[in-house]
Design a protein around this nucleic acid. Structure first.
Lengths: 185, 185
DNA sequence: TGGGTCATGTAACCTGTTACATGATTAG
DNA sequence: CTAATCATGTAACAGGTTACATGACCCA
């Protein structure tokens, strides 16, 4: 149910359209939860049926009409009870690791290439760190309570450390594979 | 399609029943890909229909009959082309991070509790590291090519570093929140 | 005698992905 | 002129979760 709660969380900052929710999601939650707009619209429907949201159409002449979603008291209650619920452990789910696991089934060079691509991908992620911080500051100016940014920064810091760890691991594993190959040669 | 390829990979080590695949999965791939037995059986059906596997029933008297799955040449081909395909970046997907992100919506103490639970969970994961290595060695003795264990250890090393990083991050974030609270008091 | 392991699944449901459809405005 | 942005979705499919059903054997 995390997508629903993510949307509730964003709507707790202010009313938005599905389109805006999608964009805000991409700018923030996307780092640890991905959602397509098609699914967002479907979930919004379901949430409105639950009574967590209400929506009204805003007529526009120059642009398409907007359907603006607004969180209800029931929605805020649901968000709160989800936030205050017990900790449940998460897990990594990454097909890349599966490919490494079965590395013995293809030439070692191929795995080394894969590791390099993985390291580069995370290096790129590290490179966008400044933009992320700018984004957080920009959003912090928009909401009434700038203290929220503390928590946003915590997740950004996690993302940074994750990328660092991945890079380091991939580099170390590549070196190790290279040494193995050289010894066998 | 990762589950299918994970099963193909395990079957490339030797023929197995759905039950055995499920257990082997739990012992190995589960660290970065989770699967329920009900889904495994469904995927096996689909894979047999594709021609990647064949199966035959082994009659038993004292225990339930076993349906043993065996990878075909087409299955090996599919595994190989998946392994040699282009790198595709993965992503983190963890509802816990979403709860941290929305930490501003509940008392800071609650987030600190959550962080502590997260740290403890990963500390526990680190504690099972020795068992994991024993498991890898046990499996390495079973398969014909002990070189495969190199790759299994690489994924285990990733898991170890991930757990370390998570623990450290959670501890640092908790301290930071505590300092903030003390300053405001 | 009660719980764990062996062994196979089905059915219903929920969640996520891909592809498609429409159409105006605006900035480069 | 063309690509991006604004704005809303539907339909079909793929993948994952939860609950249920059955039944024997073995160990404490």
């Amino acid at each position: 149910m995390s997508l629903k709660h993510g949307l509730l969380g964003l709507l707790s900052y202010g009313s938005m359209t599905g389109y805006e929710l999608n964009k805000t999601f991409e700018d923030s939650l996307d780092y640890f939860w991905q959602a397509k707009s098609s699914q967002i619209y479907r979930e919004l429907d379901a949430m409105e049926a639950c009574g967590w949201l209400t929506s009204h159409i805003q007529l526009q002449t120059d642009r398409p009409n907007r359907r603006v979603y607004c969180i209800t008291e029931a929605g805020r209650g649901e968000l709160k009870s989800w936030l205050e619920g017990p900790f449940t452990p998460g897990s990594v789910r990454d097909p890349f690791m599966m490919r490494v696991f079965f590395g013995g089934e293809c030439p070692p060079q191929r795995t080394r290439e894969l590791l390099r691509a993985f390291a580069q991908d995370h290096e790129k992620n590290l490179g966008t760190q400044d933009e992320t911080l700018d984004m957080i500051n920009a959003y912090a100016r928009k909401v009434e309570d700038p203290e929220k940014a503390v928590y946003w920064n915590m997740t950004a810091e996690f993302h940074r450390r994750y990328a660092r760890m991945c890079m380091q691991w991939a580099q170390d594993m590549e070196k190790m594979l290279k040494n193995e190959e050289d010894e066998n040669a």
